[in-house]
Design a protein around this nucleic acid. Structure first.
Lengths: 352, 352
DNA sequence: CTGAAAGCGCTTACAG
DNA sequence: CTGAAAGCGCTTACAG
């Protein structure tokens, strides 16, 4: 084992308390003494032992607040599993989670939920929210008060959030295009069903898609881009109308929710005109459609890991003061087809 | 926080040492007292705190031995990264790793390496070895002496190993078939290049492949199955000869190593006769060929995670005595194409 | 500005 | 069969 505080204290001829003050910059140490200790820390290659810190830290437990638009949105259930797994693993280290779940993407509602969490004395925040000025301001207020924030699945700009943990939307769009290039013969006539043209992630999935088709020199044409508003009903009617209008469509690219609705319209085309359908994520409805061979493949984003790692990152920051090395922690772009999609409810833990 | 040993001791009117004896079954406690304590443990819902255990455990550090046929085998480099990441994370908890790397799959050599590790007083073993009686016996000897064993990437039968961590070979073969069904028009005329017909994993990849084609009702025919002996030279000549003999081949399925050799023969066919090539894993040579569009997709198995999780599982067993809940911990079957394959050296950490 | 003491939860000799 | 004490490495009041 490496040197401990005790070793440094003995070598410096001071008490452990004094060494602790220097290590943690608590101040109130005579400059000469501080210098001597600092030098010894380097010479003896002192590294604080996490096990010791953890035990001492048990006296002041850590509560992490998680705000998610998870109500009626099955995508988040794996993210929540990830949060809970991290909570289980860190429970003995004094960590607990406090959830605030909302429905939809109304900024005012999100701000209300975030403030509600803050009132419960959380020491850190995990949020999956909308990127608008009011929300940015709210978050920055808490950050200034010393409450670190991690954005999950959807980033928030103009903030000092610790980091973003989530999908690489552009790459996932590129992967969809690459896969389509392998599956569907040229020329491609694509119908794009997006969630909302206001959502940055959805747009990045379209941009990445088109860019990758170009990179592969694929002959393609976008017949139409329609918005589903992440709603199955809207997705159904708009997809049906678009397919009616553009008979030559041979691939349907669905960047967001509304998958079941859009696929319902696709199914009405019958077998002979069946286009290649690509989607994102593997909520139960999507999984079903992959197993039915309606969807050729769905591009996933490790939602479990998004929840799990955000908590771990915040805990590390809290205990060791280590800032994440990157501003963006992208989870992998995972291609799932009939043969490697989980037909069952998602695993609880990483592996458990 | 939950109840602690101190709480139980106070409630039972005994010392903490006595409670500890009961909890850990160290014996030497009067039956009535033991009963009373056991009951209190249940009533007060006592759960041992891992942070406490870890700190106390620092006095007896844990060394884990890792035996791998990693020499000249690039596949293992990510597995080793996983081992090392786990070692870094557990260093402060008293864990260190001891490696024994060998070249190839000679049982005698593997046994020698395993015994060499054992002499260095390891408290647990991670091994990726061959499934033959001599090796099984060697491992069982150590297991009987109380040294837990985890098999990584390749399982060993007839042993009391804690668990297997690695690829689900059948599923990965199925995924290859599913992908092929999406990419290549029927009827499929497949050339299978396998590593060795003696390797269980390779055979499972063939079985899964064929089974999944049948499940999808794909018209297919296997033109030939040839062994590469995991060697590029052999792979090249045998693939070349097979392609020469079976002109109608439109897909080449490579279950193991020898990818560069086999692809060299495929490239000689020229663009117009280009078959769909599917491989496994993403060692640098394979990655290159995916980026060159010679390989359509490569099915990977999270080697990093295999290394990382095996160490974590052994550590958990050592500290908390928790046996893994499953005998097989399968890593995910990961489909990589040009757009989502990492062109750079693999990440160091999970996320770091 | 500094030290001595107590504590986080669990384990380990040691004494009786 | 049981208890009292010391210790793992770090932190936190408190006293001076």
């Amino acid at each position: 084992m490496s040197a401990t505080i005790k070793d440094i204290a003995r070598a410096a001829g001071v008490s452990r308390g004094t060494v602790d003050r220097v290590i943690n910059g608590r101040g109130g140490v005579k400059p000469e003494v501080e210098q001597r200790i600092k030098q010894l820390i380097v010479e003896m290659d002192y590294k604080p032992n996490r096990a010791g810190k953890v035990l001492a830290g048990l006296k002041k437990p850590m509560k992490i607040g998680c705000m998610l638009p998870a109500i009626d949105n099955p995508f988040y259930s794996d993210v929540i599993c990830g949060f809970k797994q991290a909570e289980r693993e860190l429970h003995d280290f004094g960590v607990s989670l406090e959830f605030a779940q909302v429905k939809g993407f109304d900024p005012a509602e999100h701000i209300r939920a975030i403030k509600e969490l803050a009132e419960k004395n959380v020491s850190a925040l995990c949020v999956s929210t909308v990127d608008v000025p009011e929300v940015q301001e709210t978050l920055n207020n808490f950050i200034e008060k010393g409450i670190p924030v991690v954005s999950v699945n959807s980033d928030v700009s103009n903030t000092n959030r610790l980091c973003y943990v989530g999908c690489n939307y552009t790459e996932s769009g590129r992967a969809a295009a690459g896969l389509l290039a392998l599956i569907q013969n040229e020329p491609l006539e694509a119908l794009i069903i997006t969630g909302s043209l206001k959502m940055q992630g959805h747009n990045q999935r379209i941009d990445g898609f088109i860019q990758a088709l170009k990179d592969r020199n694929i002959r393609f044409h976008v017949a139409d881009v329609v918005e589903s508003m992440d709603d199955d009903g809207t997705a159904y009617t708009r997809t049906r109308d678009a397919l009616e209008k553009h008979k030559q469509v041979n691939c349907v690219y669905i960047t967001a929710a509304g998958v079941a609705g859009a696929c319902c319209a696709v199914k009405e085309l019958g077998q002979e005109n069946k286009p290649t359908v690509l989607t994102f994520d593997d909520v139960p409805a999507t999984r079903e459609l992959v197993l039915e061979n309606v969807i050729a493949a769905t591009i996933c984003q490790e939602p479990f890991k998004q929840g799990y790692e955000s908590v771990k990152i915040l805990y590390d920051y809290f205990v060791n003061g280590t800032k994440p090395k990157k501003a963006h922690y992208f989870t992998d772009t995972v291609i799932k087809i009939r043969e490697n999609i989980e037909p069952h409810p998602p695993r609880r833990g990483n592996f458990q």
